[in-house]
């Protein structure tokens, strides 16, 4: 209960900052006038048009009124209208969300099993353990965008079959679902691998620690003493009992993974939330900045809550088992 209250308070604080900070900063969503050749403002607004637009987006109101309105709208599930994209914020985010979530899922699907498998092998082979452990502690802080850039230059630019960027082949006419999935996977491969390289060590450390602690449990000794086969022991006892912390870690790392994803998207021009956030900040699109934040905060908090529940469940489970 205390935990839930804490999460709620956290959410409230973040929500407040999220509303006020962008609005108190210099810059104006309707007066973004910088341009480069070829992207000029072809249509200047006169002062009266600016006022009309301001009124349309409710930016002419005092901050507190704006806040009250935004809060009321958000409570009804309305995230407002994006000023830059001229679409509802929810539409903009929902359009990009599948890409970002898909990329996160894809990279997790690569890194989590790999990390668990490696850890499972390593806890039984000390020499390999040392090597892998050392290597992973070295790379675990590499920034994903650097890994992405390195892959881009060293791999993608040298081979023909790997696309340099984007989420799919534009205007492709697919013959079937498999071909389409293949195309998506091919485009997502390098971004996912960059994310995977970065998140692999974290999962590995957790899995390794978890296996080590489970291995010391007396019930394993008992199981082995009963003459159960080693493979069965590993599957039934070690994996099952060690799983909870690993899954908890998965939920906890959602925040970090999302940050990395936003960066990697920028490297590979991947059509996700990351590119939208970049644009939203550049054009001071308040509703959109807020929307992206609201979404990522909810995701992170949900991950934390889930991991909390899992850990609580684990304690109970251990007690019952014992």
């Amino acid at each position: 209960m205390r935990r839930a209250a804490l999460l709620l308070a956290t959410f409230a604080v973040i929500y407040l900052c999220n509303f006020f900070i962008p609005r108190l900063m210099p810059g104006d969503p309707l007066q973004y006038s910088s341009s480069v050749s070829g992207e000029d403002m072809t249509v200047p607004y006169n002062a009266e048009q600016l006022d009309q637009l301001r009124a349309y987006y409710g930016l002419d109101q005092p901050l507190l009124t704006q806040f009250a309105r935004t809060l009321a709208a958000n409570l009804q599930g309305d995230l407002g209208q994006s000023i830059h994209y001229k679409q509802p914020v929810s539409a903009v985010i929902l359009g990009r969300l599948p890409w970002t979530l898909g990329l996160m899922a894809f990279s997790t699907a690569l890194s989590l099993p790999l990390a668990v498998a490696l850890a499972l092998v390593c806890v039984r082979r000390p020499r390999m353990d040392k090597a892998v452990y050392g290597a992973f502690s070295a790379i675990c802080q590499l920034p994903p965008y650097l890994v992405g850039l390195a892959l881009l230059f060293l791999v993608a630019a040298r081979v023909d079959w790997l696309p340099l960027s984007g989420g799919e082949t534009a205007f492709a006419r697919y013959t079937g679902l498999a071909q389409r999935l293949g195309d998506l996977a091919l485009h997502g491969l390098l971004p996912a691998v960059s994310l995977c390289v970065v998140s692999l060590p974290g999962y590995f450390f957790t899995a390794r620690a978890s296996f080590l602690s489970v291995r010391r449990q007396p019930y394993l000794l008992a199981a082995r003493a009963r003459g159960l086969k080693e493979g069965l022991v590993r599957r039934r006892y070690i994996l099952r009992n060690a799983a909870t912390p690993i899954v908890a870690k998965l939920f906890l790392s959602i925040g970090g993974l999302m940050g990395s994803t936003l960066l990697v998207e920028n490297v590979f021009a991947y059509p996700g939330v990351g590119t939208v956030l970049r644009e939203a900040v550049r054009y001071r699109d308040y509703p959109l900045i807020q929307g992206v934040f609201l979404f990522s905060t909810v995701l992170v908090l949900a991950g934390m809550l889930a991991s909390d529940r899992l850990c609580a469940g684990l304690d109970k489970g251990v007690r019952q088992d014992g």
Binding site: P98, W99, L101, G102, A105, F106, L177, L184, L239, V247
Partner: peptide, 28 residues
């Protein structure tokens, strides 16, 4: 592990279908 893989699979499936839907505004 079971829970994890089930959740993982669900998320993955969700994302896949969603991204399919997103890209499928194909031209006549």
């Amino acid at each position: 592990m079971k829970i994890a893989s089930r959740i993982g699979a669900a998320v993955l499936a969700l994302c896949m279908t969603a991204s399919l839907a997103a890209g499928c505004s194909a031209a006549p």
